[in-house]
Simulated assay, not measured.
Amino acid sequence: MTTASRAMTQLASWPDLSEARPSCGTGRALRSPGAEIVHFHSGRRVDLHLTARMIHHFESDLRHSTAIRLVPGSHWMTVRLECDTDIDLLMTLVSVALQAHHGRPDPDGTPPPPCNDHLSAVLAPQHADSG
């Protein structure tokens, strides 16, 4: 069982999440009543709809994680799931995403912002020794 399938199994049991077809058309998704929350694109890569506001709020911390990839201006972040610690990180971030979307559902008729699956300009984490 891949790390993504283990994470999907755990998250699918959460009462605020249900399986849905991802708006990007790739993989599997979980959504809350108000928004798409997570897209599982591969056995190790997941896009999480944290919201641009929350990504900006936590950006300095997120950039230090080797598991996180950020795309400028995106409402989504990509999480690489390599080990159980990455799954734990995803669980925490999904909880934050649910809080970010609570009371702020996607407006009817408005498609969700696109996930990072089809974007090629994903930024690598910044490291103090790079440059």
Rank of each mutant, 00 (worst) to 15 (best):
D16W: 10
T66N: 12
R69Q: 13
G109W: 00
H56P: 00
S130Y: 08
T78W: 03
R80M: 03
H39I: 09
G34K: 01
S130V: 11
H127Q: 10
L90I: 12
H39F: 06
L48N: 02
H102W: 04
S42R: 09
A124C: 11
H39D: 12
T92Y: 10
P22I: 07
S23H: 03
A20Y: 01
A97K: 00
G103T: 11
E82A: 13
R63C: 07
H56F: 08
P125F: 05
W14A: 08
V46N: 01
L62Q: 03
T3S: 09
C24H: 04
V79E: 03
H57E: 11
R31G: 03
C115H: 00
G27I: 00
F40E: 01
H39Y: 06
L119E: 08
M77T: 06
L93T: 06
R104K: 15
N116S: 11
H39C: 15
L90A: 10
G34I: 00
F58I: 14
G27T: 02
I87W: 06
M1K: 09
H101S: 08
H75C: 06
T2G: 08
L123V: 11
L17G: 04
P107E: 02
N116M: 11
A97R: 00
V122M: 13
R28N: 04
H49G: 06
R80P: 00
L48M: 09
E59G: 05
R53A: 15
A12K: 14
R31T: 08
S5T: 05
L123G: 09
H101L: 09
G34C: 00
P125Q: 09
Q10S: 14
A128E: 14
G131C: 05
P107A: 06
L48E: 04
H64V: 07
R63F: 03
L70W: 05
G73M: 09
T92W: 09
H101N: 10
G131N: 09
G34A: 02
S42I: 12
R6W: 08
C83L: 04
R21P: 05
T3F: 13
C115P: 01
G103Y: 12
D47F: 07
D86H: 14
P113E: 09
L50Y: 01
R31V: 01
H75D: 14
D16M: 13
R45Y: 02
I68Y: 08
V79P: 04
L50D: 01
V96M: 11
R44D: 15
E19S: 13
L81M: 10
S74A: 14
H64Y: 05
S65W: 05
I37H: 02
T26H: 15
A7K: 01
H102R: 11
A128R: 13
H49R: 11
H57A: 14
V122A: 11
H56V: 06
A128Y: 10
P72Y: 08
M8G: 05
H56L: 10
L93V: 09
S42E: 12
R104G: 03
G103L: 12
L50R: 02
P111L: 05
D61T: 15
G103M: 13
H102Q: 10
A97Y: 00
G73P: 07
P72S: 13
G25D: 07
A124D: 15
P22C: 08
G73T: 10
L70K: 08
